[in-house]
Nucleic acid binder design. Structure first.
Lengths: 211, 211
DNA sequence: GGCAAACGGACGCGACTTGTCCATTTAAAT
DNA sequence: ATTTAAATGGACAAGTCGCGTCCGTTTGCC
């Protein structure tokens, strides 16, 4: 969507040494990265090379010539998104209001993480560096909010980490179909449980059965 | 585990009309149902007929002779668990304390639903009757808690339904490994967000990195 | 002991996935 | 415009996996 695909594209094109790629080659790598991201968000660990190629509008031959393997491509995408999440965390830390910063991060984190579905689990914890950076930022966000007495102090930053990954984006259950912002209501309620003072106003309006 | 497998077993054995099954046949159906439940909990929609047969300690031939198809078996299991959940809801409604009842149900619901992973999604919403019964009970639990002024009133029972399915049981994230009761802490925080008065004490103790 | 019921697992089949190869197309340099 | 090497696409080969059947063997039951 609004992603900075460039880094991932650049890295994937750099595999040889020094030769400048032809225009269509570059274009196709971009398409592949974008398609991979969408497909991963939609299909999770069920993504296949052919499916990504199909969505990108290129042949499988091009897929393998350009990105080498499915794993390489997913790895690049994962790294990319992790970078975006980290950037969001930095924005959050720059916010003067500790609580506002934290909630903004929580929202962005859930959105982006959900976009990756479970391909990170599939790939294992390969990205030690980026992960540690993110961990550190979450720790700082939590500590800051707790010092400002806007977050309950009987939770650790690890608790918060699990809390965030525990919030998923269900789209239907028991025959009910969730609206786009249902997950934001869920998140808000969870945040209220994390907050020190009183509950806040929920986004949207209560879902009523039978849309 | 502590399940009442009997109903499911009975139904699966009843496919013919009237003839009493041999002892080993009955025993194998029981094993298959139990194995199916465990396997479904562990593998989600990745369960295969062969895997269930393997866990049950029977041959695939027996699997198909006894339960007809994978779908039939999963259907029976799903129905079974749904029955257990409904029973828990009834227990909850019988509790004099509306909040205690609700939280007990929430806990049981998450545990059982997680046991089914996503096979219910896979099978679609085939079990209209049982589902409606459960919906009704959740509605009553929510209304009761709200009337007693122990649950915030800006949420609908549908919101609560989504909230409950939204709480998953993550076992690891960012290199952290969750303990057995991490999900209970998550649930408690969420419940605090749903509760009217003040936050309650969290179960267990805050997770600290590196177990 | 006898017999029908039940069992197990090898096997055939079809659906997928990965990755390669080569005839054809295309960007770009002259 | 011509040339040419890079780039493309999709059929294809090879391998994996899950489903469900079939049949020789075992086993519960009378």
């Amino acid at each position: 969507m609004m992603s900075t695909i460039e880094r991932a594209v650049e890295r994937l094109l750099d595999d040889g040494s020094g030769y400048l790629p032809r225009a269509d080659a570059r274009r196709n790598v971009e398409r592949l990265v974008t398609a991979a991201r969408e497909a991963a968000a939609e299909l999770g660990d069920q993504v296949t090379a052919h499916e990504i190629a199909r969505r990108a509008g290129v042949g499988v031959g091009t897929f393998y010539r350009r990105v080498g393997s499915l794993e390489t491509l997913l790895h690049a995408v994962l790294d990319e998104v992790l970078g975006e999440i980290t950037a969001k965390a930095d924005e959050a830390l720059a916010d003067d209001d500790p609580w506002a910063g934290f909630t903004a991060f929580a929202s962005a984190y859930i959105r982006l993480r959900n976009e990756l579905c479970d391909i990170n689990e599939t790939l294992g914890d390969v990205l030690g560096d980026a992960r540690d950076g993110l961990r550190d930022r979450i720790r700082r966000l939590v500590r800051r909010a707790q010092k400002a007495k806007v977050m309950r102090t009987d939770v650790s930053w690890e608790d918060v980490a699990f809390l965030l990954v525990g919030v998923t984006r269900p789209d239907h259950t028991m025959g009910l179909h969730a609206g786009e912002l249902q997950w934001e209501r869920n998140l808000q309620i969870m945040l209220d449980g994390l907050r020190t003072p009183q509950p806040s106003r929920l986004p949207g309006r209560p879902l009523r059965a039978q849309a």
